[in-house]
Simulated assay, not measured.
Amino acid sequence: MSGQITDAQDVSKQKNVVELNALTKEFQDLVAVNDVTLSVKDGEILTLLGPSGCGKTTTLRMIAGFETPTKGEIRLTGDDVSETPPYKRDTGMVFQRYALFQHMTVADNIAFGLKMQGTPDSEIDSRVSEMLEMVKLSGLQGRYPAELSGGQQQRVALARSLIIEPSVLLLDEPLANLDKKLREEMRMEFLRLHEELDVTMVYVTHNQEEALMISDRMAVMSDGNLHQVGTPEEIYLNPNDEFVADFIGQATFLSGSVTDAGSIYTIELQMGGVIEVARSSIESPDETEVGSDVNVLFRPEKFHIEKHTGADIGRNQFTGHVEESTYLGDTIEYYVRAGNERIQVNQQSLTQAREIDDGDEVLISFDEDTPLVLPSRGQ
């Protein structure tokens, strides 16, 4: 993949706080970030999302000034800062491991940036008090980091970055070291503070659920390349390619080839059987012709499942056997073997009793406008 996916979407008429133009970072023979063009709007939360080693943290570190681009340009509020040192950039940084000064109290940690700016002590004291209240740490100003929980330490790190009122707040996997309950609490804190302060955020994570929850827009990366930029809804419902579809949420891919193309596309599946799909579900209809190899993406919640009664199979239906199922409270996950394919089906648990058991023969069906048809990688 070339990496030449750009952020051309007009989110609104807000100004760009961050602009990355053809940004590239090479470490000897490794291209960590490849020709990325991206913008972040004023007041927006943009998430850089992808697996480990995809280039998201390197991109964030270049924005912060901790890494220098090999090629390309970084602009903050319109100014080229590509070679500007970190302390001269109008950014705040929240690290995964907090990076607090262990020998300083909570108040001194939060005040550190203001002191470096030469802010008068009287103003520092009042602003630190305001920030402590904002991050719900009032009364803890005299404690040291070792005396705090992980969630409290992350709040101190967040307050230290916010108190200098940066143009953009950069967050590198800030919740990775917290347990599940604390992660959920801190997500809500980030959203609350974002709403109160209207601060622009660039947020790095590998956690899809986290990104879907907090983002105004997401930028999905792998192997240094930018695959897609869009709102959580756009990326989940209309992924650009198989990587994005597979990485965001759960998905089943069924390979096939197009045998008829019109308002309805007919696709012969490799596993056997023929399905019909609406033209609106074709990712690239102008490029998807009769004879084209395709991959049909199904989200597990888009299937309907029921016990097979032996009746004739209709359009967009196929049968299989339940290999395993998992009860998750409000949802039951079924894994169904249909031919050579293993298909995931999620069904809402509306009753206490399960109607389908492991080993049952089932009928799976779907509506013609629910799958997404992507060109095969081999094309």
Rank of each mutant, 00 (worst) to 15 (best):
E130I: 11
N207Q: 09
A99W: 07
F247L: 05
V168W: 01
T37A: 07
E283I: 05
T47H: 06
A261K: 04
G118D: 14
G72W: 05
E361S: 15
A176D: 06
I124L: 02
A311S: 10
S161L: 06
R160H: 03
G118M: 11
G359D: 15
R183V: 02
F243A: 02
Y87C: 05
E333Y: 14
E323P: 07
V94N: 09
E289D: 12
S349L: 07
M1E: 11
S263N: 15
D90L: 08
K181M: 02
R183Y: 04
I264S: 15
K115Q: 15
T105F: 02
S39Q: 13
D260K: 14
T351M: 10
E276I: 09
N295C: 11
T231V: 07
M186C: 09
N21Y: 13
L226K: 01
R192Q: 14
T84F: 06
F298Q: 08
I110N: 02
E73W: 07
F101Q: 10
T57H: 00
T24L: 08
L350M: 14
T58H: 00
F66A: 00
K136I: 08
L23G: 04
P51N: 07
L76F: 01
V81Y: 01
V294M: 00
F303P: 01
G151A: 05
N346Q: 11
P120H: 14
R377T: 09
D172P: 00
E341R: 13
E306G: 11
G378I: 14
E189H: 09
E123A: 15
Y265G: 02
M186I: 08
N295Y: 07
V202K: 01
L170P: 00
Y236A: 08
P51E: 05
L372T: 05
Y327H: 12
S263D: 15
D80W: 07
E196G: 05
N34C: 01
A261F: 06
S82C: 07
A278H: 08
Q352K: 13
P375D: 02
V81P: 01
V258M: 03
Q208N: 09
L114H: 05
M188Y: 10
E67L: 01
Q154K: 11
G291R: 03
L114Q: 07
A251T: 15
G78K: 04
V135T: 07
E333A: 12
R299S: 11
G273D: 05
K307H: 12
F66C: 01
M93A: 02
S376C: 06
S126K: 14
F247W: 04
P120N: 13
L193Y: 08
T47C: 12
T288L: 06
A245L: 03
N295V: 12
R342G: 04
F298H: 10
A157V: 10
T91V: 14
T68N: 07
N238M: 09
F253N: 03
I74F: 04
E289A: 13
A8K: 13
